[in-house]
Design a protein around this nucleic acid. Structure first.
Length: 156
DNA sequence: GCCAACGTTGGC
DNA sequence: GCCAACGTTGGC
């Protein structure tokens, strides 16, 4: 079982959107490192911290799970899509994604500012300066720390 | 293979 | 809106 953090701008796709949809395809990731995590390492049942970037304040806002393992991102083949990639073909896809399913919206988000100031979480990738990765691994101890603090389903 | 120019991310 | 920190592109 692995743990991840996925970023989304709430104006693009928020935790409330995921709550409504129950499930979503994580389209539009165009960074190789993030792609590799999704394509090669994210497994069904892995836990995901949902993060709002470019938000006021930027914060962890909920939990999701990986509910479908990697497959080619369909948006790369669609010329009308903003994520269209001319170099990609269905025979040779470049970009991959996973589906994630809604688990929980935190009653109280955990802001980036708070994470920086909580002893034990200050080493998380997301608070490192210049960490722009939109899909990133999270250490088990960090995940559990956060779930213990925020989740209704503590310690599962 | 280097690296300058450019584009993007995301906190502030 | 600014800009630092990255990642990507493409000429050489």
């Amino acid at each position: 079982m692995k743990y991840w953090l996925m970023k989304s701008e709430p104006s693009t796709y928020s935790i409330d959107d995921l709550k409504r949809d129950k499930k979503t395809a994580w389209e539009g990731v165009r960074n190789y490192q993030a792609r590799n995590f999704m394509r090669d390492h994210m497994k069904r049942g892995d836990h995901v911290l949902f993060y709002h970037s470019n938000a006021t304040p930027p914060a962890l806002v909920g939990l999701a799970t990986v509910c479908k393992e990697s497959y080619p991102d369909p948006s790369q083949f669609d010329p009308r899509n903003k994520y269209f990639d001319q170099k990609a073909t269905p025979e040779k896809p470049i970009w991959y994604l996973v589906d994630i399913c809604f688990e929980e919206k935190f009653e109280t988000p955990l802001s980036l500012e708070q994470i920086k100031n909580i002893r034990g979480l200050e080493k998380m990738l997301v608070v490192q300066k210049g960490s722009r990765l939109s899909v990133q691994p999270v250490e088990k101890k960090h995940f559990e720390h956060i779930v213990t603090m925020l989740s209704k389903h503590k310690g599962k």
